[in-house]
């Protein structure tokens, strides 16, 4: 094909055709443009610039996409911020223990019948755990079983299962200051939520106590309100 093209280019016929086309194209370029048409080539625009409006800007897909992205980012920040507002020393461990509460079966625990408040002696004598005391608010609850285990940070956790609303209690070391090693204290009861479970946490003598049950926060409130009275 290249040979054919090359042959054609060299031929008189092709040269004449090229001259013909060039001459016609030159004639076309010489077509005069009337003044009325030339007006269109001036600085005048085809369209008058329309007014900038918020409505138009908001409808623009690029602006819309950026807006949605900013809203999502802001949402994530707000969510994290609100989550942090309820944080307290030991809240991370408390949430992990709520996950454990959700997956614990009663057969895993040693059967123990008695008042929850009496288990402090058991934890101290059998496991050497000091101040693992059940607060007075929950001390009278009948226990079904209990156990002591180590979590993934080698902290020793006491877990108690009580008959009342199949509630579970957890006792675990309070979070400590990284520099001084002193237990980080907080006053009163704090709530944590995880996977449909709610926990009420308090700290005493460097040990945190958490009462946990499956359900909303209001199910736990009456027990704590009673304690206040």
């Amino acid at each position: 094909m290249r040979a054919a093209v090359s042959r054609a280019r060299g031929s008189d016929e092709f040269t004449n055709q090229q001259g013909f086309d060039r001459a016609v194209a030159a004639l076309v370029r010489a077509i005069p443009i009337p003044a009325e048409a030339v007006e269109w080539f001036s600085d005048k625009d085809l369209t008058s610039p329309s007014k900038w409006t918020w409505k138009k800007t908001a409808r623009n897909p690029a602006v819309l996409a950026i807006g949605i992205a900013l809203i999502v980012i802001a949402g994530v920040f707000v969510f994290n911020f609100v989550g942090r507002l309820n944080d307290f020393p030991g809240s991370g461990t408390a949430r992990k223990l709520l996950t454990i509460a959700g997956s614990t079966r009663s057969v895993l625990l040693d059967p123990v019948t008695g008042d929850a408040g009496t288990l402090s002696d058991l934890f101290f004598l059998k496991h050497g755990l000091e101040h693992y005391d059940v607060p007075a608010e929950f001390a009278d609850f009948q226990t079904i079983g209990c156990r002591v285990f180590e979590d993934d940070e080698s902290q020793r956790i006491a877990q108690i299962w009580v008959a009342e609303k199949r509630m579970q209690f957890f006792l675990f070391p309070a979070e400590r200051d990284a520099k001084t090693g002193a237990a980080l204290q907080f006053s009163g009861w704090r709530y944590v939520h995880q996977e449909g479970w709610v926990g009420a946490v308090t700290e005493r003598n460097g040990v945190c106590f958490m009462a946990a049950l499956r359900g909303p926060e209001k199910d736990l409130m009456p027990y704590l309100a009673t304690a206040k009275q």
Binding site: I33, W40, N60, V63
Partner: peptide, 18 residues
């Protein structure tokens, strides 16, 4: 989405007329 003022090139509008 903004109507930006851009003058069309003379060459092409001239060609359109031609």
């Amino acid at each position: 989405g903004f109507q930006i003022s851009v003058s069309a090139p003379k060459q092409n509008l001239a060609q359109l007329y031609r």
